[in-house]
Structures are given as C-alpha cells and as structure tokens.
Design a protein around this nucleic acid. Structure first.
Lengths: 157, 157
DNA sequence: CTTCATTGTAAAGTCACTTTACGTCTTCTG
DNA sequence: CAGAAGACGTAAAGTGACTTTACAATGAAG
C-alpha cells in the first residue's frame, strides 16, 4: 500500500447525536427480524407457496369483504399491482373474489379458510414475538417502547 | 349498506398483548417515514437520479475503498446484484472502481465527490430527524427508545 | 339521459434482482 | 514449485413484481 493511499473512509461524517447506527438502520433491522420470524412461522405451518409480496395482504385488519381498490389502498399499491396479487393468491387458494348480490360486477375480496389460517399463524407469531421481547426488555420498558413507536408512526405528515 | 352486509372481518383474531397495530407494522411505518425523509432530502439537494435501490449503498459506514463482495455483504445482496448496482451508480457518477496497485484485477469501490456529497446530505438529514424526534418525545425517553431499538436489532440469531 | 369520475381488469413494458457461467486470483497441499 | 480448490469479479440470460397504458362497465351529478 503506497503512502498516497488514504484510510478507507477518508472523509469523516460529522458526529450524529447518539452516533451510528442511526434510527433508520435500526428500524430496518428490527423490522426485518419481525418479517423473517413471520416467514419462518408461515413456512413451518406448511404454507410454503406464500412469497414475500403476499404478506402485506395479511396486515391487520384482514381483508375479508373488501373491494380490490380498498385493499390496494391499505397495502399502498396500485390497483393494477393489487389485482395482480389477488389473482395470484386466488390461484393459490388464499383469497377469492365473490360477487355481492346487488353489486353488478363489483366483486369483493374474501379470505378462504386457508387464508384465515395464515392470518391466525401470523398473529399468533406476532403475539409470541411481542411477548418474548416484553420478557427480555422488561414489560414496562417494552410497553413504553411501543408507545413511542406508535407515536412516531402516527405523526401526521 | 344492506342488512345482509357483514362486518368486514367476520372472524375475530385472538386478542394480542397491546393489540394491533403490531410491532411489525409500527416498525415498518416508522422506517418508511425515515426513508421518505431521506428521499426528500436527497431530491431537495438535487440528486434526482438516485433511486430507491441505490440508498442502501450509503449506509454507514460509507463504502470507500471496499471490495464489491464486502459491499454486497453489507447491504445483504448477492455479488451479482451488487455489481449491477455498482455499475449503475458508476454511470451516474456516485461511485468508481479503482484498481489498487498490487491487487491485480481486484478493484475497490470508491465514492466520488458526488457520492460523498450524498452521504453528507443523508447523514445531515438523519441527524436532523433524530434531533426532532428527541425533541418531540423527550430527550431521555427517546434515548431509551434508541437503546431498546439497538438491543432488539443486535439480538443474536 | 348525458357526462364525468371511479372502478376492475387486462396487456405490454420495465427493471431490479436471480441463476448460470466462466475467467482470474489466492491459497492450500503435496 | 506445481497443481487443485476455493473465492472473487463480472457478464448474460431469465424471472417476476410492479408500472404504464388502455378500456369497458358502473355509479354519481347535472
């Protein structure tokens, strides 16, 4: 290595309150941990055909009797992309589109029995994870952590 | 709404400690907020050609003088996908591959001046956001929040 | 009824990423 | 030192989630 070689990060980044790792990275890592856990639970329960993009569909509240556009809005995707998802998950047997009696061709999305089962696996998994974390961090402290999280998530704009 | 209409979720999900929204959803929302903020800052600073997939490259510590495979490992992608990213960002002028004298064809990834500028914009943005949050939540409480986050992120396995 | 926005969905295009492949370099072993 | 084995860099083709474009059908407003 020649003398002209600089240290890997030759430019310092101005000190950040609390320093790295930053909130962003920490949030991302934690969220990943949760997601991996959910994946694992789903796979362990035998629903091996569910892929990553399908998961948001099982966000609370579960999509039973909602219009495709409503579902699209909930999971923050375009109607088209959502329709793509729905078609796929209908083929896999997790969802179905059923017409409402008076509704012309307006069809609502419903969970099948299989879909409900996945929902239950996911929520059981989350319940367990939260209990574990509460245990590890301390019930009260974890409760406060959740409160802060809720507040930061709710913040308007 | 007709009388035949059921409530959207006809099947109840067993109560979860603290109830919904769950940790996963909260973490995701908060993380998104951070990411959107970073995007905004980057765009405002005029780096409008940077897209979503490019951002992880600017994680701390900034990739200056690292091997492609090292970078791949850091951002959790395959060597090939990372190489795809590097090629793109090199074309955009944020990175460059430079040979080390003795290293044969082993070339290291370096930030260009433009790349360093983005890094600074991002870290300034994060510093500002953390300060805002600390202000809003309360310095001490936010500090504890960060501690919990760090612990949950660090948890082995 | 006519007009206009909204909705559902289909079809084609895009692009991030994977899989496959291969040549080069490093390191281990005899 | 030679040869084998593994890691590394990168290119090329394939995959699939999503976007864009398009359009027919519905419902609402005038």
């Amino acid at each position: 290595m020649k003398a002209s070689e600089k240290s890997p990060s030759s430019r310092a980044i101005a000190g950040v309150e609390g320093g790295p790792p930053f909130v962003g990275a920490l949030l991302r890592v934690c969220w990943r941990r949760v997601r991996d856990r959910m994946h694992e639970a789903i796979r362990a329960a035998g629903f091996t055909d569910l892929q990553d993009p399908h998961l948001p569909v099982f966000s609370y509240p579960l999509p039973d009797g909602v219009r495709p556009s409503e579902l699209a809005h909930r999971i923050g995707m375009s109607r088209q992309a959502t329709n793509y998802l729905i078609t796929q998950m209908e083929a896999l047997g997790y969802l179905e589109r059923r017409a409402t009696e008076g509704g012309g061709d307006r069809r609502l999305v419903h969970l099948t029995e299989r879909g409900w089962q996945v929902g239950e696996v996911i929520f059981a998994c989350l319940r367990e994870l939260q209990a574990e974390w509460a245990e590890e961090i301390g019930r009260e402290r974890f409760g406060d952590f959740m409160d802060v999280l809720r507040r930061l998530a709710a913040e308007k704009q």
